[in-house]
Design a protein around this nucleic acid. Sequence first.
DNA 1: GCTAAGTCTGAGATCGATTGCTGAGATCGG
DNA 2: CCGATCTCAGCAATCGATCTCAGACTTAGC
Lengths: 331, 331
Amino acid sequence: MPDLSIDVVAKAAGVHRSTVSRAFSRPEAVKSETREHILRIAEGLGYTMSPLAQALRRKTSTFVPLIVPDITNPFFAELAKTMTQAADERGYQLLLCVTNGDPAKTEGYFTAMQAMYAPFGIVAPSTKVDTDALKRFDFGHRVVVIDRVEGDSSVPTVTVDSRRGIVLALEHLRSLGHTSIGYVSGISGTHTAQDRMDAYLELSAEGSSTPLVLDSGSDPDAGARAAKHFLEMDNPPTAIIAANDMVAFAVISALGQSGIRVPEDVSVMGFDGLALGARFNPPLTTVRQPIADMGNIAIELAEKQNLNGSVDHVVLEPELLVRASTSGPRK
Amino acid sequence: MPDLSIDVVAKAAGVHRSTVSRAFSRPEAVKSETREHILRIAEGLGYTMSPLAQALRRKTSTFVPLIVPDITNPFFAELAKTMTQAADERGYQLLLCVTNGDPAKTEGYFTAMQAMYAPFGIVAPSTKVDTDALKRFDFGHRVVVIDRVEGDSSVPTVTVDSRRGIVLALEHLRSLGHTSIGYVSGISGTHTAQDRMDAYLELSAEGSSTPLVLDSGSDPDAGARAAKHFLEMDNPPTAIIAANDMVAFAVISALGQSGIRVPEDVSVMGFDGLALGARFNPPLTTVRQPIADMGNIAIELAEKQNLNGSVDHVVLEPELLVRASTSGPRK
DNA sequence: GCTAAGTCTGAGATCGATTGCTGAGATCGG
DNA sequence: CCGATCTCAGCAATCGATCTCAGACTTAGC
């Protein structure tokens, strides 16, 4: 394969380099005959422009980083999947960047992406993002965050309404007849995690039942600890809300290990709406986040900010997804 | 942030551009005093080299594509995770490319990666890879495949020993007392999927029990169909081997929906060893693939092939992982 | 038919690096 | 003390595109 540069095509088409360039990136600036001729020749040669050279010269590329803490977490995987497509449709190429929760890595990606002339980026954090720290980076001025952010600041964000989600969960459980409803966090760090917990605490109290947090850790063992705690209680709740689907899985698994059945002995709900939940045992009742929408909107917000500096905060509506892990309380 | 080019650093350090370049990429070619001086200045300015310009000029980059069909599948997610790190450690930057099973996308990535001057790539296919089709692409000569390929050809591969894995599963189940062991494929397309199924068919017959394939589809509903089939049988098997963990999850879930208990009523095993399996209900007994090793070795093979054209085929040993989804057959 | 206003295309500098070549000093043996 | 050998740094071409400028040709208006 001889190296295919723009000059090769130019020679083959009998025109100047610049004309070929225009034929591709500014079609209206070149006579349509010439353009079609060039395109035909290029096609025949199997030529495509070098994104590298292009980015270098233009000082802007179509690479859009999506920074996530852990791709092994299905929530982020689903986000990545839908965002890949959303990016594609708009002519961008999503670059997945995994931090493993290490803030230093995030910063590394920032400078790398700056160097790649990425027009903007999307960050799905694992901690409360520090807006000021963000803004210390050049690239930090061009990201949108998938989480709430301290004091509605100058960074565009997309989130779903945590409180509304908890309301949905609580209503569902109460309509089933539950009055004693526990909570296990299993995540922390992000504002979203905090918001869900706060909403539970507050709304649970309103409902005249005492809030009951089985575990508030954020490690993978939270589910097991919550189950242990549950077993040790004299008067355990008849239903449990988990802060996200993964934790719900862990709770159900741990409970199952001790012979507790879901939903016969206790109802368990998740929060996320992972596809995986439909194939859990039992299929998980949960509060669905519109992940695909989040991805699309994140990119839109990024484009908007890039265009006219506007900083929007979009809050999406969650949705109740009833499957089989909840039922009426045991008599 | 003024644009930080190599010339800026050169000026600041009072040397020529080329000297700065050497200070970074060919340390031995510049007097150590000078070099340290330059490095210090660069550090102070917060300068990093443009990977774009570098790749353009050198005609080789450090981008390594990992092409997977679906990042939402935890197997590929885990692969991506470990490979990201493996790549990092060797100075590469992994670029995750998701095809959604569309071969056209794979080809698109090939030419894109060619244009990015990627030194090589890793492909985790969802279909039997056609070596000839691969070789039609320039970039196809520099990939390693995570699957077996037709006729031990000229493409390096990494796989785990499918037959051995099935042996492990069968031995485990038989030692528990099972004699009637079913199989559900749920995947197909890859040679690995084929190999597992073939191994089951063959070894199962040897064990003097008749092979019993509950479902051989490859869609997400295979689990449900297998469960349906199971329920309709007069004499259902007492144990089921699923071709991978995800299918095992689906089978257990579907069975559970019909009131069949695992492992009390029927034992179910998976194949993969996903981290998720430990938190399933019940925790999944499975055959573990050394995913991290696969990632590391894939990159090693790629480097080797790139260096001296050697084409190796590495076959890794799977390992039995006993958890709670298997037990003795019901009396 | 002649000038003014468009259309198109070509020239050449430029983006941020790398690298073969050349030459200035330093080192060294005799 | 002199030429030969080494080191080390500068020069300038190059990678594959983009884009401003300016010139060549059309087209239009009167």
